[in-house]
Simulated assay, not measured.
Amino acid sequence: MSAPEILLELCGMVPPEPMERVLEALDLLQPDQHIRMVIDREPVPLYRILEKNGYRYRTTMRDDYIYEILISQND
């Protein structure tokens, strides 16, 4: 059985590495899992890719200006 969450700590990485990491994780994502992406800037270009490929996401900016994005497959 797979873990319910794939955690990606991407703060401090230089583009395009954060995008590459999340795209790799999407290939591994199972229907019962989600990705928790933690990053120090809002990954706006990623949103279009997620929408185009049938993923849903929820973005939250924490008090420390770090973004947490939860990504899962559409049901």
Rank of each mutant, 00 (worst) to 15 (best):
M1H: 10
M1T: 02
M1V: 05
S2K: 15
A3E: 11
P4V: 08
P4H: 12
P4F: 12
E5P: 00
I6K: 07
L7T: 05
L7I: 09
L8V: 01
E9W: 13
E9A: 15
L10S: 12
C11G: 06
G12A: 12
P15E: 08
P15H: 07
P16D: 00
P16M: 08
P16E: 03
E17Y: 08
E17L: 12
E17W: 09
E17G: 02
P18A: 09
M19C: 01
M19H: 07
M19A: 05
E20F: 07
E20K: 13
E20C: 04
R21H: 06
V22R: 03
L23M: 08
E24I: 12
A25Q: 05
L26S: 04
L26R: 07
D27E: 15
D27I: 06
D27F: 13
D27N: 14
L28C: 09
L29N: 02
L29S: 02
L29V: 03
Q30R: 13
P31Y: 06
D32M: 14
I35D: 01
I35E: 02
I35R: 02
R36M: 12
M37Q: 14
M37N: 12
M37L: 15
V38H: 10
V38K: 14
V38M: 09
I39N: 02
D40I: 04
D40Y: 07
E42R: 15
P43R: 09
P43G: 11
V44F: 15
V44S: 14
V44C: 12
V44W: 15
V44N: 10
V44H: 13
V44P: 03
P45A: 13
L46V: 05
Y47T: 01
Y47I: 03
R48F: 03
R48W: 04
I49C: 02
E51L: 08
E51S: 05
E51C: 02
K52V: 00
K52M: 10
K52A: 12
K52E: 11
K52W: 04
N53Y: 09
G54I: 05
G54K: 09
G54A: 11
Y55F: 15
Y55C: 00
Y55L: 01
Y55H: 10
R56G: 09
R56M: 13
R56T: 06
R58H: 11
R58W: 09
R58K: 12
T59D: 06
T59E: 07
T60K: 15
M61T: 05
R62F: 03
D63F: 13
D64C: 11
Y65N: 11
Y65T: 06
I66W: 10
I66D: 01
I66L: 14
I66K: 07
Y67G: 03
Y67R: 06
Y67V: 00
E68T: 07
E68D: 09
E68N: 11
I69N: 07
L70F: 14
S72A: 08
S72R: 06
Q73V: 00
N74G: 07
N74I: 04
N74H: 09
D75V: 03
D75G: 07
D75N: 09
D75A: 12
